[in-house]
Design a protein around this nucleic acid. Structure first.
Lengths: 212, 212, 212, 212
DNA sequence: GATGAATGAGCGTTCATTCAT
DNA sequence: GATGAATGAACGCTCATTCAT
């Protein structure tokens, strides 16, 4: 949980009450959804007067955006900018499989620490243009180009089948998202051998997408 | 659209007004979400008095359930009961790949005719226990057992890798859902060669899940 | 009071509750001002649920406009269009003084029956652009042109001093308004000999503005 | 503007911040009215913390009273006490017309320098008993008696018609107020020949009220 | 003296639901 | 069966005021 608040604390200085508000809002919205959570409930759980919420966030929607924006940024952070692409080209990963493994491990841990945040993102994305804007920009400007370059690179090395990058990306994203949603949201209480499951999932993807 | 109303008309006899209400509700809820759609808006668009809605549906929630329940039933209908499993055992499909193809083609067409309904299901599932109950029951009692039996069958025939059925199912469902959501909801306006895309997707799944 | 409601009922069909709401709103706003009157108070006094107000008036401001607009129209109604000017030219009034007398008598009675409405108009005009718009349009398109034509007419007949029409109008309006506000708002409880006071006021204006 | 602050600075010693607060409050309240101006806005414009306002004025209403009271005092100051009446009896003004001219010139200049303050007084008088009390006391104890004595004096000299003093006062006040409100508030941007307009207005009053 | 975070009562408004017609 | 006026609880939000620093 403290981990989760780190994701949100990307901002400069927050008062303790502001942190309480964020934490309460995340808990309630993750559990019941944005429209089923009233600002008075959030204030109650945060141990704060309702007006205090609006001192820190102009509107309830602003509060939601303050929760969701850092998740979008952080989730795709590893793909950012030169860092990621540079590593690929510097051959930091011997194979695409190794890259995939490193990537999934890293994002798996992030997801694990931020389940409520990611749940909110997934649940509310459909309803709030404000979030969609942030998401689309992040995806089209950061995530997609980075993945695209990496895939081109490994295609040239002959490691990936000759099919549209978009299909490859869609398959990878669907598979990873499907795994993580099952793992953390649908059946979090099942006994999971995470390491085995990740490896299994990567094997499937590599067999499906990789060249023999 | 008439197709979509067929999906909903599974019920007994509906008056024309009731159909108008359902159609209006589907359009509005698909576009703006359940909580952003008021019953007065629905009544307006349906050309009906607000009270009339409550003559047919006790509550607004009931109306939502009336929309979503048939989608859940119909989407998994082909997997229902003996029919599907019987066909598998009767070797109606020469290979798992053929089964997959038949299944996806069929569900693709259903999805195409019911985009707004499916959008509503996916968007609202997270927020309404009433829907979750229906969904879980349908999945655990119908979908999962059917898929399970089929997968066991093809495993014995040596067509599928030796991995947990749950992993196989999760991969298939994720990949198909990822494809259909991209196709119909995220990028519906892109130029799609549906037949090629479906075949491509099946090839990936077969390479990933199938035995060489 | 029933007279006052006539002024407001210019609209088509109003339900009894809507009339109750208007009456309550007029009473409270006249007494305490728009910003000191809450919609819940209005609902209470009208014997109506608060929501009922918003069924008839989209916003609180709309309610105010519904009160004030008819007052503006009705107060200047006698000056409207051809009727008034035509009468002047047809020499329905032998002298300017007679015209003034007829006009003041008539408006005096209107004011007497609509004190709360006029109080609201005068009090709120300064704060609500919505009202100002209606007022300015009415004054510049109806009131001012009518007075202007009438004054020109009596100037040519040699009954009025040669001074700018605007000065004449300002003097007349100030004097009449000053009288009526004193009579009905500042000292309504003083013993007034209305007929004498009106005649006196007209004499003053005629001596001040008329040619010897 | 510095002139306007002089009107308000009648009080003891004011810190620079207090002056900033007053100035900001006057600007905002004159423009938007008391109820449309929040203390936080005033603090913002004054460059002061919100709490600072309440260090100098116990309540927001106190702040309003601090603005409006000096206007009331100053506007009627020339009529104050013995000074004015003594001058009249000492025959400092040859005629009532001269008195009127001196009075109007003087008050015109005061009004010109204090438009925002007077606007606030006129706009808010109706809504705040605290202001009404100050106003009534000032008028009934200072303004009215002074005017009354002066009018009696000139009546005895045969310069004024024989009509109730109250009617005379009402006419004068209405005419002057009507002129000044038109000049400074309704049409401040029109081209005005102030000297001519004042003389014209006095001529009208004298013809209307004076004996031939 | 000055600050500004915190308060909480109160506001205007929405909307699912009821019910007399 | 259908209507739509009426309801009232609940909501997001504002703002004058307080008080620890």
């Amino acid at each position: 949980m403290s981990d989760m608040m780190d994701t949100l604390r990307n901002e400069k200085n927050m008062t303790p009450k502001q942190i309480d508000i964020l934490r309460a809002a995340v808990e309630l919205i993750a559990e019941k959804g944005y429209y089923n959570t009233s600002t008075s409930e959030i204030a109650d759980r945060a141990g704060v007067a309702e007006g205090t919420i609006f001192r820190h966030y102009r509107t309830k929607k602003d509060l939601l955006v303050a929760i969701v924006t850092p998740v979008i940024s952080n989730f795709s952070a590893p793909l950012f900018a030169e860092q990621f692409v540079a590593q690929v080209f510097r051959e930091a990963y011997a194979t695409f499989k190794e890259l995939l493994y490193a990537f999934i491990k890293n994002r798996f841990e992030f997801a694990q620490s931020n389940v409520p945040l990611i749940r909110i993102l997934l649940q509310e994305l459909a309803f709030h243009p404000e979030i969609q804007t942030v998401y689309k920009q992040q995806f089209s400007e950061k995530v997609y180009p980075a993945l695209n370059q990496a895939i081109d690179f490994y295609k040239q090395k002959g490691e990936l089948k000759d099919m549209p990058n978009e299909t490859i990306i869609r398959t990878i994203v669907s598979t990873i998202l499907g795994f993580m949603m099952t793992r953390f949201m649908l059946k979090p209480d099942q006994n999971w051998d995470d390491e085995a499951e990740i490896k299994q999932t990567i094997d499937i993807m590599m067999d499906g997408l990789g060249k023999v």
